[in-house]
Design a protein around this nucleic acid. Structure first.
Length: 302
DNA sequence: AATGGTCAAGTCAGC
DNA sequence: GCTGACTTGACCATT
């Protein structure tokens, strides 16, 4: 049996509940927050139980789990209040051997020249780390971000990323990984940041097609695999394909099983965990798990 | 009950 | 300088 796992991000359409409920800032109240977070953690556990049952062992937890957690309006001790619930979810994750990631939003930029944006971004990263810490997850649970903006000078902007990364709190640093994006920072750019910082590089196959430094998937895996140290776990890969009916860059509605098979064949012999960034979420994950059943690299291989 | 404008946060291209 | 795309659903005020 192998170690590879398949997953999907944040939302499950099959089961009834939604674990990413939020509300408007102007409606903020402590009771509203408690009510929403309670719903979200309850539902998160339900989703994880569904996933484990169906051998979907990789999952991205929504950034909306605790709405406004990093905003000044929120002074509530949500970590203390929900300690037992977070621990329970963490126990389940470990028992079921599920891999977890989070993906803070596009607003999270540590390489911007605006110090206020940097400060807000660091608070948001700290919040994501607190979620994973509250679940007592090990260092294989990662927070993925992009390198950030270019600001008219990519070289200087990369240097700014590196300098700011070095100063981050250890609680953030140990979980942070960078992902090639579809417009600005390519795989090679990310690898250069890795050389200077040691930060692992998460490979996004679809972004790589749109904003490429030219490598075939297996070459890309060859390059990123060593950036993941033993404690980081196997590399994470974001997988998607183009939505045929829609504009360039739009994620597919549903997995193209044939394309997925080819991808699996083309990436041997590397081990990594695959996040399916596909609109129909768990439906595609179920198909992918089935498609991987004959690949000995997977946990679920028969 | 149905509808549709709007939502914490940033960047960048195109006017 | 300003607007809209990015990407997306769902919140919630209004009807």
């Amino acid at each position: 049996m192998g170690t590879m796992k398949i997953g999907y991000p944040c939302i499950n359409w099959t089961i009834g509940c939604k674990g990413n409920r939020t509300f408007r800032l102007r409606n903020y109240s402590e009771s509203r927050l408690i009510e929403t977070v309670q719903n979200n953690v309850d539902c998160l556990l339900e989703i994880l139980q569904f996933n484990a049952k169906h051998h979907i062992l990789f999952f991205r937890i929504t950034s909306d789990l605790v709405p406004f957690a990093s905003h000044p309006v929120c002074t509530f001790d949500w970590q203390g209040h929900f300690r037992a619930q977070f621990k329970q979810i963490g126990d389940f994750i470990r028992t079921a051997a599920i891999r977890i990631s989070v993906h803070p939003d596009q607003f999270i930029l540590i390489n911007t020249e605006d110090e206020e944006v940097v400060n807000r971004s660091i608070k948001e990263l700290a919040y994501h780390a607190q979620i994973l810490d509250s679940m007592a997850l090990d260092e294989t649970a990662k927070m993925q971000i992009h390198v950030g903006g270019v600001y008219g000078d990519k070289e200087r902007s990369m240097r700014r990323f590196i300098a700011r990364y070095e100063q981050l709190d250890q609680a953030i640093q140990r979980r942070l990984v960078i992902e090639n994006d579809d417009q600005r920072y390519t795989l090679q750019d990310c690898l250069r940041v890795n050389m200077e910082t040691g930060i692992p590089v998460l490979f996004d196959t679809f972004h790589h097609q749109l904003n490429s430094s030219g490598e075939e998937p297996v070459e890309a895996l060859t390059l990123i695999a060593p950036t993941w140290r033993h404690n980081d776990g196997v590399p994470m890969v974001d997988y998607s394909s183009q939505n045929r009916a829609d504009r360039k860059g739009k994620h597919a509605e549903s997995i193209d099983v044939h394309h997925f098979h080819q991808f699996l064949e083309a990436t041997k012999p590397f081990d990594f965990d695959i996040m399916l960034e596909i609109k129909d979420k768990e439906q595609s994950a179920l198909k992918a798990v089935e498609a991987a059943a004959r690949d000995e690299r997977f946990v679920t291989a028969s």
